[in-house]
C-alpha cells in the first residue's frame, strides 16, 4: 500500500514535470521577453559558481593526470599523457563536474528562491500586477542556465587542462608549447561539440528542475527547505540519466563515422 503510493507520487511528479516543460516551451518563445531579468540571472549564475568551478577544474586536471601517470608508465607511453588526459577531461569529467557543481549551487538556489517567493505570495503578487510570473521567473532562469552551463564548461575545460599541464610538468619536464601541441594531436572539435550539446541539456535540466520544485512549493517555510533539497537531488539524478543517454548517442555516431 505504502509502496504503491510512493510510486504513485513519483509518477504523478514526473507527469507534472512533463507538463511544466511543455508550458515552458509554450511560454518561452512568445513575447514579451524579459531580457533584463535574463541577463541578471546569467550574471548571477556565473558570478556564483565561477570561483568554485575554477578551483575544482584545476584540481581535477591535476589529480587525473597524476593518477593516470603510473598506468601509462607501465607501457612506457608517458608521452601520450597530455592527449589521453585531455580527451577524458573534455569529453566526460569536466562537463559532469561543472554540471554537478551547478546542480548543487544553482538548482538549490532557484528552488529556495522561487519556493520562498511562492509561500510569501510574491508570485501571486506578480500575477495580479499583470506580469506573467512564469515568464519572468521560470523562462528567464531556464534560458540562463541553459546558456551558462556550456560557457562555464568551456572555462572549466581550459582551467583543468592548465592543471593537467602543471601535473605533467611536475612528472616530466615539459613546456607549455609542447604540452598544447600534444593535446591538439588528439583533441578535436569532435570531442568538444558533443560535450557542449550535453551541457546544454544539463543546463536545461538544472534550470527546469530547480524552477519546478520552487514554483510548486507547498507547506510554508518547511516546504522551501524541501524544495531546495529535492531540487538538488532530482537535478543530480537527471544529470546522470542525461549523461547515460548522451554516451549512447555519441557512441552510435562514433560507430557511424
Amino acid at each position: 500500500m505504502k509502496k504503491a503510493s510512493a510510486l504513485n507520487n513519483l509518477l504523478s511528479e514526473i507527469g507534472d514535470l512533463y507538463l511544466f516543460i511543455i508550458k515552458f516551451f509554450k511560454e518561452g518563445f512568445k513575447p514579451r521577453y524579459e531580457f533584463a531579468e535574463f541577463f541578471r540571472q546569467c550574471y548571477y549564475i556565473g558570478n556564483k559558481t565561477l570561483p568554485l568551478i575554477a578551483v575544482t577544474g584545476f584540481i581535477i586536471g591535476l589529480v587525473v593526470t597524476i593518477q593516470s601517470y603510473p598506468s601509462l608508465e607501465v607501457f612506457g607511453t608517458e608521452s601520450w599523457m597530455p592527449s589521453v588526459v585531455s580527451v577524458s577531461l573534455v569529453r566526460e569529467l569536466v562537463p559532469v563536474i561543472t554540471a554537478l557543481i551547478c546542480a548543487g549551487k544553482i538548482a538549490s538556489g532557484i528552488g529556495a528562491e522561487l519556493g520562498s517567493m511562492k509561500v510569501t505570495e510574491q508570485i501571486d503578487a506578480m500575477e495580479v500586477s499583470g506580469t506573467n510570473p512564469f515568464k519572468y521567473l521560470v523562462v528567464t532562469r531556464v534560458f540562463a542556465t541553459t546558456l551558462m552551463l556550456p560557457l562555464l564548461m568551456i572555462l572549466c575545460d581550459t582551467i583543468s587542462l592548465y592543471g593537467a599541464y602543471i601535473a605533467v610538468d611536475m612528472k616530466q619536464a615539459s613546456t607549455f608549447h609542447l604540452f598544447t601541441s600534444q593535446i591538439f594531436i588528439k583533441l578535436t572539435f569532435g570531442d568538444l561539440i558533443p560535450s557542449i550539446i550535453k551541457s546544454l541539456f544539463f543546463g536545461f535540466a538544472i534550470g527546469i528542475i530547480g524552477c519546478f520544485k520552487g514554483y510548486y512549493t507547498k507547506n510554508g517555510t518547511q516546504g522551501v527547505g524541501k524544495a531546495a533539497n529535492t531540487a538538488v537531488v532530482s537535478a543530480t539524478f537527471a544529470l546522470f540519466i542525461i549523461d547515460l543517454i548522451a554516451v549512447q548517442i555519441a557512441d552510435i555516431f562514433h560507430i557511424i563515422t
Binding site: 528562491e113 520562498s116 517567493m117 510569501t120 505570495e121 510574491q122 501571486d124 503578487a125 506578480m126 495580479v128
Partner: peptide
C-alpha cells in the same frame, strides 16, 4: 483592480 495582500508580499530581492 488593485490587490493588497494580507502578507504584504513585497518582493524581498
Amino acid at each position: 483592480v488593485g490587490f493588497l495582500f494580507q502578507s504584504n508580499a513585497l518582493y524581498d530581492s
